[in-house]
Computed example of a mutant assay.
Amino acid sequence: MIALTDQAMAVLLLTLRLVPAFAFAEPFTLLRVPAIVRVMLSIALAAWLVGANPAATWQSDYRASGLAWAAVSELMLGVGLALSLQFAFAALLTVGRALDIQAGFGLAVLVDPTTKSQMPLIGTVFAYAAAAIFFASDGPADLLAIWAASVQAVPLGTGALGGDLPRLLGYLSSAFVIACGLGGAIMLALFLADLAIAFMSRTLPQMNVMLLGFQVKGLMVLALLPAAVALAGGLFLRLLRTALEAAPQLVMAR
């Protein structure tokens, strides 16, 4: 009976390590899934991890520092593991927002029905394309492997935010460079269009440059965006792979 109680407590505590990814991190927040389903999935995965790692979970001395600290440390660890995916999709949304402003779509935003927040138009396309590639590739399996490895490396109740700060900064720079590579061709095309329209405005001052610019750049985005997304599968995979590889660098054992 005592062992069963310890296992149930370990499952609830370990759930706090998994919930932040399902509740706050893309690509899971891009899907309209009821909260109760997310919680039940987290509990089921936590029970699987507890059953596979008894020495690092319910048989460990996680009660030594108190259940409150164990819950806080597990939540901090879960937030750290989820940050890597959030940074990757934040880079995509930032680049998409820059393209929106450059193309004249700065006022066009979409409301995410899951988070009830406003998202950039082109950034939303990038985010959903990355989410589709994440689920179509080995992304979920790799995330499960990271959680399993984190249980073995950081036993229950011993997690804390930390890690290698230079590597974290390197990951952030890499994520934004890769995201810029996804929209680099569109940015260059829009820049050349701005130059051409600027030269035309000097020779034809009576022309409505702003109206012409909106039309030309809008058509260019509609023509180039599908090609950019279709040809950038490798960059999407590289970005997601970099995010998953950076996740263990955000946590450490105390």
Rank of each mutant, 00 (worst) to 15 (best):
P113A: 13
F105Q: 09
D100V: 09
V229K: 02
L4V: 12
P27H: 09
D194V: 01
A127E: 11
M119P: 00
A198E: 10
Y128D: 14
A148Y: 01
A227C: 09
L250Q: 10
V125R: 10
D100H: 02
Q7R: 12
L18S: 02
Y128V: 14
M220D: 06
L165F: 11
P54N: 13
A55P: 00
L169F: 12
L49Y: 04
F89R: 08
M76G: 13
L239D: 05
A253V: 12
F28L: 12
R254G: 11
A8D: 09
L41F: 07
L192N: 15
A68T: 13
I146H: 02
A160T: 12
R38S: 05
L192P: 03
A132N: 09
V33C: 09
F89S: 15
A160D: 06
I146K: 08
Q7W: 00
A71F: 05
D194E: 15
P54Y: 11
A103G: 08
L188E: 12
Q249M: 08
M119A: 13
A232L: 04
L172D: 05
V125H: 02
M9S: 11
L41H: 06
M200Y: 02
G106L: 03
G104R: 02
V37C: 10
Q59F: 01
V50A: 09
T114P: 00
